[in-house]
Design a protein around this nucleic acid. Structure first.
Lengths: 154, 154
DNA sequence: AGAGTGAGTTGCGTAAAGCAACCTAGTCGG
DNA sequence: CCGACTAGGTTGCTTTACGCAACTCACTCT
């Protein structure tokens, strides 16, 4: 393919985010990272991803400031990949993926790993809510307003 | 490439969702769909996507039950692509993308299109919350529990 | 000394992304 | 009624990146 088109010029947060995490492997790497996977070979074995592709994705994520490398052994030098704050903030995205998947493409129930909310102690699902009134969103009660820019682009 | 690896056997909602929407163009097509874009040429012009790739993505989305085709003109037959309920339910995913993008890769402010919550009337941001206690989630207060299955996979 | 481990890198073949040109069915202006 | 235009694709070609296996490098363990 002729170099995947850059989306940077689409002045849009969704597009910019899609540029970074809009890739199947990246999403799965992040999922594993949230589950505590840190090492190259563990990612590789768990996902069955090609090693060169994994190396590529990890370095992109590090460059993007989503993962950070940390030395966990001096001799021989070994490092592991850990989520930065920026990376951890992607939790919402993964929770949203998960909830949609559970609803519409539910895999075998036995494989669902429940989420527990430590604040209230309950098994939970994530719900996207309005930061003002706290009510859950759905497509009927959300409207996208025009941007301040003199138009041009959605 | 040797056919992008299928993720179906990874018994995981995140993986299944990533299989469908873990692709930059798909994300952007959905964004446009939420903004009201319905026609082939409008998607094409807005995104600058190659026409064959657009055709491919649209038909995948239709097959996945995320978009539906609807005849809006008989002669000549013309149809448009609209979000199904399943598709509309992806709103959370896009809101999560958007929020993260605004926070960490904020584009020029003038291009941000605010979201209005029609229930409370305010300009808002989406926050992922616990469906039990309603509190916002973050990585520190969410724990993934083991699945019921006898292990095998994260 | 030889096997093993962790973290990649290299080289190869194929499929998918990008691009432009073309096609089909119809409408419209003159 | 001829040519131009529009909407919605399809075809053909080139380039890139994915998947796979094999290899490297540096160090440890037995």
């Amino acid at each position: 393919m002729p170099a995947r088109k850059s989306l940077e010029d689409l002045q849009c947060s969704v597009a910019n985010t899609a540029e970074l995490v809009g890739d199947q492997w990246t999403v799965l790497i992040l999922r594993d990272a949230f589950l505590g996977v840190r090492r190259f070979d563990d990612f590789q074995k768990d996902l069955g991803i090609a090693r060169n592709v994994l190396a590529d994705r990890l370095s992109r994520l590090v460059q993007a400031g989503i993962l950070d490398t940390r030395l966990y052994e001096q001799r021989p030098p070994r490092h592991e990949y850990v989520l930065t704050e920026k990376g951890k903030d992607l939790l919402d995205v993964l929770v949203a993926f998960r909830r949609w998947g559970d609803r519409w493409n539910a895999p075998d129930e036995r494989y669902i790993r429940p989420l527990r909310h430590l604040d209230c102690g309950e098994i939970m699902e994530g719900v996207m809510c309005c930061n003002h009134c706290g009510q859950p969103l759905d497509h009927r009660n959300v409207r996208v307003e025009p941007s301040l820019a003199p138009v041009i682009r959605y």
